[in-house]
């Protein structure tokens, strides 16, 4: 029983950490720009494809390939913000439509370029690791460790760098931040780039574990959205707690009752959360 519990928690934490990466970017973009980024899953997908091309087709070593994919998706995010989102910022409805349009475009471009078939990326890590009575695939453990590393870096970025502090200031009170000389345009672009970068990292990390295909972003996007609603839209600590919680709860329900029940429970929890406490578990009241 104890070993089963440990196994459930470990499985949950490794998937949960990827959810956290997705949800953090999603919630950062919403918190700063009030954009519900429906294209977040497609940024994940592009991160995965970038890694597959770099490490698979071009035979780059794993580490440079992953770094390059992450930077690439970050730059794409900055470009999307500059060219498209900056034009409709402030109008929540138009931002949503625009994000949907971007999502459809990116997905269909991936479909045109890479075709509908699932492809695999080379696996840099193989084998299993024994942690007491529980067994965990080594590649999963690697993804978990990399995700934790990214989270720490993100935390330091938000709390120790000037740009990070400016971002938090804009998220808390845009007008007050502007009064103190923070240029909102710059922060918007930076936030979209960082949010995209995190999604790209999640995609690039998961590419060797799952297969890569143009529609692969839909499920992670849905998970990110569930996490963010649970934790509170715009709340960064909420995204971390929500992501880990969803990972563990899903893992428990999937082990005991099957993945369909797990998914239905997740949806029911979302509906209940918004109905009872729309600001989420850790969000502020608007």
């Amino acid at each position: 029983m104890l070993s089963l519990t440990l196994q459930i928690v470990l499985n949950g934490l490794t998937t949960g950490l990827v959810y956290v990466l997705m949800a953090l970017g999603f919630t950062l973009i919403f918190g700063i720009m009030r954009v519900v980024n429906f294209a977040h899953g497609e940024l994940y997908m592009i991160g995965a494809f970038a890694l597959t091309v770099l490490s698979g087709s071009l035979h780059w070593p794993y580490l440079p390939a992953i770094l390059c994919s992450v930077v690439l998706v970050g730059l794409l995010g900055a470009l999307l913000e500059r060219v498209l989102f900056s034009r409709v910022i402030g109008n929540e409805f138009n931002c949503m439509i625009l994000a949907l349009g971007v999502s459809i475009c990116l997905q269909s471009i991936a479909l045109i370029v890479f075709g509908p078939d699932e492809v695999g990326a080379p696996r840099p890590v193989t084998g299993v690791v024994h942690l007491g009575p529980a067994v965990i695939p080594a590649d999963r453990l690697f993804v978990g460790a990399a995700a934790i590393l990214l989270l720490v870096a993100f935390y330091l970025f938000l709390n120790k760098t000037r740009l990070g502090l400016m971002m938090r200031a804009v998220a808390q009170d845009p007008e007050m931040a502007a009064l103190h000389g923070v240029r909102p345009n710059l922060i918007h672009t930076a936030a979209f780039a960082v949010g995209s970068l995190l999604a790209g990292a999640a995609g690039a990390l998961m590419a060797p574990i799952y297969t890569v295909a143009p529609y692969m972003g839909e499920l992670p996007m849905m998970k990110a959205f569930i996490v963010v609603v649970l934790g509170g839209l715009g709340s960064l600590p909420g995204a971390v707690v929500g992501g880990l919680m969803l990972g563990i709860v899903e893992s428990a329900f999937a082990t005991m009752l099957g993945s369909t029940v797990a998914a239905l429970v997740a949806f029911a929890v979302v509906v209940a959360t918004i109905a009872v406490r729309p600001e989420g578990l850790m969000g502020r009241r608007a």
Partner: peptide, 11 residues
């Protein structure tokens, strides 16, 4: 290209 057209039309 059908999906792409939809996306571009939306944008």
């Amino acid at each position: 290209y059908q999906m792409l057209t939809y996306g571009l039309l939306l944008l």
